[in-house]
């Protein structure tokens, strides 16, 4: 089966910085794919190459089998792109914004008018459609921002951090809408800082760090990468080296990593039950000033693979 959106070997360099290197993934029709990565990991650069805003140094992108580099207009016509910022005209009404972007996709006048009504209904803004965008709340703007990408019924919807800065009510409306679109068979590429959104919406997740995809799979596959072990984050004060040696040798500790001057990360089976032994092991050498136990989930996997929390 032809992937709705596929990329292979994508690389992009800005001066001396290799922003993206050898990125590749494929999204099947009706599949929701999440791209997770900390700030500066290369998510937006990757998306810019996928929608034709940046020319990759190497690699290629196909949309429903159409090569983006060879047939850019045909390929772009199948993509619905929702940028991270509110890329709309504040001096126009919501309806006028939709009409403008719909025209760029070549929708005939009558069809466009009907699609605008459908999309306004989908994003729940039919009653505010004729108000100036500048008077909308942040959440309402976000919903129009998404709506503008849906007018031409794209094969794949690319959402770059669509819920940044929105209220819980709008966030729920956005996620519900996105789930409906995926259920209706639209392919989805979704990036977010909110792990729970990705876990809720996406079938598969790619974790990107320093411009590379470091892991990819379903939620279960990714979580399994760190096994059933809990991650324990410790902050120590005192003889940290001596305490670290003791912790490494402790029964139940699978892995120990120094993550800073006074910080240590442990991977331990049944982390909560090992905690008393940990406190005892460091006693006399160092004092535990903070401790956090993270059970195996996508967040823990992310931390394990990238060494940082998603919202760092």
């Amino acid at each position: 089966m032809t992937a709705t959106l596929a990329c292979t070997g994508l690389s992009k360099r800005f001066g001396d910085v290799l922003a993206v290197q050898d990125v590749g993934f494929a999204i099947a029709p009706g599949e929701a794919y999440g791209l997770l990565g900390p700030n500066g990991a290369g998510k937006t650069t990757t998306i810019s190459m996928l929608v034709g805003l940046l020319k990759p140094a190497t690699g290629n992108v196909t949309v429903c089998g159409t090569d983006l580099a060879a047939e850019p207009l045909a390929a772009k016509a199948k993509i619905g792109y929702v940028p991270q910022e509110i890329a709309l005209y504040p001096e126009l009404t919501g309806r006028e914004n939709l009409r403008f972007f719909g025209r760029l996709f070549g929708l005939p006048r009558r069809e466009l008018a009907a699609r605008i009504d459908e999309v306004l209904d989908l994003v729940g803004l039919s009653d505010r459609a004729d108000g100036k965008l500048g008077t909308y709340s942040g959440g309402m703007k976000r919903r129009i921002n998404i709506g503008a990408a849906l007018l031409h019924r794209p094969e794949v919807l690319i959402l770059d951090e669509p819920t940044v800065g929105v209220d819980p009510q709008s966030r729920k409306a956005i996620l519900d809408g996105v789930e409906r679109l995926v259920a209706d068979g639209m392919a989805l590429l979704y990036t977010s800082h909110y792990m729970e959104e990705v876990e809720r919406v996406c079938d598969r997740v790619g974790i990107i760090d320093h411009g590379r995809i470091v892991a990819e799979g379903t939620r279960h596959e990714l979580v399994a990468m760190v096994g059933s072990a809990d991650t324990i984050e410790l902050m120590l004060d005192g003889d940290v080296d001596g305490a670290f040696d003791k912790l490494q040798a402790l029964e139940g500790v699978v892995e120990a990593v120094r993550t800073g001057t006074g910080s240590v990360r442990l991977l331990a089976e049944g982390g909560r039950y090992v905690l008393p032994a940990i406190i005892t092991a460091v006693d006399g050498r160092a004092t535990v000033t903070a401790v956090e136990v993270i059970e195996p989930d996508l967040e823990a996997t992310f931390l394990h693979l990238t060494g940082s929390k998603l919202r760092d």
Binding site: S48, V51, G52, L53, P72, L73, A74, K76, A77, I79, Y81, P83, Q84, E85, I86, A87, L88, Y89, P90, F101, L104, F105, G106, A148
Partner: peptide, 11 residues
């Protein structure tokens, strides 16, 4: 304001 890139991402 991002509208230029949004246009350019279109066909």
């Amino acid at each position: 304001q991002g509208t230029l890139n949004r246009m350019r991402a279109g066909p």
